[in-house]
Simulated assay, not measured.
Amino acid sequence: MNILLTGGAGFIGRWVAKQLLADGHSVWALDDLSNGREQNIAEFREHPGFKAFIKGSILDESLMESLFHTHSFDICYHLGASINVQDSIDDPRTTFNNDTIGTFYIMEQCRKHNVKVVFMSTCMVYDRCIDEEGITEKHPIKPASPYAGAKIAAENMVLSYYFAYGLPTVVIRPFNTYGPFQKTGGEGGVVAIFVKNKIAGKDVNIYGEGTQTRDLLYVEDCARFVVEAGYSDKVNGHIVNAGLGRDISINELALLIVGDSSRIHHVEHIHPQSEIQKLLCNYAKANELLGWKPLVSLEEGIKRTEQWITSTDLI
């Protein structure tokens, strides 16, 4: 198939591209590089299925029109977005424009050209988990940040194109994803930051009390979920979660990674109002509709991430 991948030079986008190419598809990767990096996809440049990297924005309507008119896409995996919670609090306009208006521009082109849409949302739209059954797709939502609010608005628009036009669309909500190629600096995920500090011999800082929990999904498991959502008609018109099905407190995670409690410190939280105290995924729907389940344990995923960071120049 011919596939447009927005956010294709991003952390998860890079792994989705790898999976799509391995499956034999033709991939056009679009990214404005506000968060993604060209080196993430450097290894695909000579792959016969990798048709082009386009540096550009989903807010550029003329570019969108040209891409969709020139190439007969079968699926659009729409991962391009502003993803940082604190950035959305500091500058909600940019996040809203990218995540909501940009998604509208994508949807319009997909409607005109009858292209299936796999829309990457986030677990950050949910209210806190209240039991050990985990968060299903029917769990209450709570937009505790402009990022979450923008994603919810975009989700509803994506689903409206399914109901109003019969356009095949699916909203996917992966839980906290980590692994190789994730940034290890301030914009990175908690696992990448903790692992980098461990390797560099630095202490780790935890926002708040550290009792907040996260369900951490290894990036190759996430990419497999994203890709398979595009292949299946069973998920059209649905919202689908993906996660490990196990949560861990940030305190426990830090100790698991660093192994020395004296190197772990707590600092004042930068956005306590947008913190979700407990995130635990129930991925039964993904298993039922896609036959998907995570294959990489947290311990194995951390090991792979540490090996990757050690082998790069990110320290």
Rank of each mutant, 00 (worst) to 15 (best):
I3G: 05
L4I: 10
T6M: 01
A9V: 08
A9L: 07
I12D: 04
R14L: 06
A17Q: 04
K18T: 13
Q19Y: 13
A22R: 13
A22V: 14
G24T: 07
S34R: 13
R37P: 01
I41Y: 03
A42Y: 03
F44L: 10
R45K: 10
E46F: 05
P48H: 11
K51L: 09
K51M: 07
K55S: 07
S57E: 10
L59V: 09
L63H: 01
F68R: 05
F68L: 13
F68Q: 05
H71Q: 13
H71Y: 15
C76R: 14
Y77T: 13
G80N: 04
D87N: 07
P92T: 01
R93S: 02
F96Q: 07
N98Y: 05
G102W: 10
T103N: 04
Y105W: 14
V115W: 03
R128V: 09
C129Y: 03
E137L: 02
K142Y: 12
I152A: 02
N156P: 09
N156V: 07
A164I: 15
T177C: 11
P180R: 04
Q182R: 09
K183A: 15
G186N: 14
V195M: 01
N197W: 13
I199D: 03
G208P: 07
G208K: 04
R214I: 00
D215R: 04
V219M: 08
D221N: 04
C222A: 11
F225W: 04
A229I: 10
Y231D: 10
K234D: 09
V235A: 05
N236E: 10
I239G: 02
D247K: 00
V258E: 12
D260T: 11
V267T: 15
H269E: 02
H271T: 13
I276Q: 11
I276A: 09
N282V: 01
Y283F: 13
A284L: 13
L289C: 04
K293I: 01
P294M: 03
L295W: 11
V296C: 12
L298G: 02
G301H: 01
K303W: 09
T305W: 01
Q307I: 15
D313V: 12
L314N: 03
